[in-house]
Design a binder for these strands. Structure first.
Length: 426
RNA sequence: GUGGGUGUAGUUCAGUGGUAGAACUCCGGACUGUGGCUCCGGCUGUCGAGGGUUCGAAUCCCUCCACCCACCCCA
């Protein structure tokens, strides 16, 4: 038997009803904040990701689905292509390619779609997973660097999660400063760790060499006293970065968005600058982050584009749905009417009637004239139908249909002309 | 890539060397135009795959595979 490949999965009803509800709500919120949808290709030139996400990150160094396309001409080398592991790089590429900076305004773009990373699957982590993301990007003259953009994005996310129905989420906020700040901080961390690192777990010893920032993320209890004494990134921000972060916080305070500063939160993509954030939720197993994001002031230029600071985020839709389900969210898609043809020659009458209902905006399902009435009732019950409408010879002749409310058990005769009204009002 | 757990009916699972089971689901009937409840009857399996031990393997051994969870890392 051929099965869905590792890390991929089928989304089936009724789960897909919940997914669609999330999609619809998210589009509704984005529209109210004046975002518009962008759709970028599912695969891109491999270099797009190695140059934006970062050659040394886990994503690029070991998690990408990459292959060589055939050369177009004999003189050409085959092109290396990659299934997108995230969507910000693609959006910024499109921004540059279509000269959107020339519009002179802020671009507020959102996307919903699958992303691909070749990781070992576990709860809340799949090789094909879905992200809902948005970016605000534009020339500095349009206000793209303003801390108001950061605050606006965070406020929207708080609203979005509330409206989607997620309870008990937490916003973790940090600033990782600019590239220079991070270089100085990395150096300081290395120096601070040097005398004590041999007391720490083997992971931390490795991290000190490869990526000292990661040490801050360590969860080993014995290491915590050491980690608490390490220098903080906030002490290494230069004046502009410090002011920017303070402005973001004061606007969040003004708007009444609650957050916690987490100066140990480090994010793994190289392009992040200044504000970084995560929204977390308890129902997700080890993957507590429902969404993550941050500012990326230098990304466009690193892709040979114009100066175009930006800020964005990606919601893990798989995780958001998981979190909603963990708090008991159940999609209950029901059909309003079940039309039950009864006896030979009734299928046509049933279809005609169902057509009238459906055209009037009433959801309806149809049985079959070979079903005994008992079976039709059972089917109607299984479908979660509110009403069953019986289409038998008597009914057709009298132009009056037996309509039974399956919840209350009440049954009445309803003239054809009043049928849609009767079914709609309940 | 590493570690742990689990693979038996459509589903959830029991079965630790001797004829593969239960519950639920599904199908039919009791009930010929009235569901949920009840009762009766019925279908369903390469026991994850391959090899080995044994008179005999779902069960013991070896190898592999898949899924789940965790690490790493991230959404």
């Amino acid at each position: 038997m051929i099965k869905a490949v590792r890390g991929t999965r089928d989304l089936l009803p009724p789960d897909t009803d919940l997914w669609n509800r999330v999609d619809a709500k998210v589009r509704d919120v984005f529209a109210r904040y004046n975002y518009h949808e962008i759709r970028t290709p599912i695969f891109e030139d491999t270099q797009l990701f190695s140059r934006s996400v970062g050659e040394e990150t886990d994503i690029v160094s070991k998690e990408m689905f990459t292959w060589e396309d055939k050369a177009r001409a004999q003189s050409e080398k085959p092109q290396s292509l990659t299934l997108r592991p995230e969507n910000t790089a693609g959006v910024v590429r499109a921004y540059i390619e279509h000269g959107l900076d020339k519009k002179g305004t802020l671009q507020k773009l959102y996307y919903i779609g699958p992303q691909f990373r070749r990781e070992r699957p576990q709860k809340g982590r799949y090789r094909q997973f879905y992200q809902i993301g948005a970016e605000i990007i534009g020339p500095p003259s349009a206000g793209s660097e303003s801390p108001l953009r950061d605050a606006e994005v965070l406020e929207m996310l708080a609203t979005l999660l509330d409206e989607v129905g997620l309870r008990d989420w937490q916003l973790q906020l940090n600033s990782v400063g600019c590239a220079e700040d991070r270089a100085r901080y990395n150096q300081a961390l290395r120096e601070a760790l040097q005398p004590v690192v041999h007391l720490m777990c083997t992971d931390c010893q490795r991290r000190t060499e490869t990526n000292p920032l990661r040490v801050l993320d360590c969860k080993v209890p014995e290491d915590q006293p050491i980690i608490e004494k390490l220098p903080k990134i906030s002490e290494y921000l230069d004046e502009p970065c410090r002011e920017h972060f303070a402005a973001v916080r004061s606007m969040l305070d003004a708007a009444g968005v609650t957050y916690t500063i987490n100066d140990r939160m480090v994010r793994g993509l190289d392009y992040y600058t200044r504000t970084t954030f995560e929204f977390t939720h308890g129902g997700l197993g080890a993957q507590s982050a429902v969404l993550g994001g941050g500012r990326y002031d230098g990304l466009s230029e690193s892709l040979e584009g114009p100066k175009a600071p930006g800020i964005g985020f990606a919601i893990g839709e798989d995780r958001l749905v998981l979190a909603l389900q963990s708090q008991g969210e159940k999609p209950a898609e029901k059909v309003q009417a079940y039309v039950a043809p009864l006896g030979a020659g009734m299928n046509g009458h049933a279809l005609k009637l169902a057509r009238e209902l459906r055209r009037a905006g009433i959801s309806a399902d149809i049985g079959d004239e070979t079903f005994r009435l008992k079976k039709s009732f059972e089917n109607a019950e299984k479908a979660g139908a509110r009403f069953i409408v019986i289409v038998g010879e008597n009914e057709v002749a009298a132009e009056q249909f037996a309509v039974k409310d399956l919840a209350s058990g009440q049954q009445v005769q309803v003239p054809r002309a009043e049928l849609t009204k009767h079914l709609r009002q309940n």
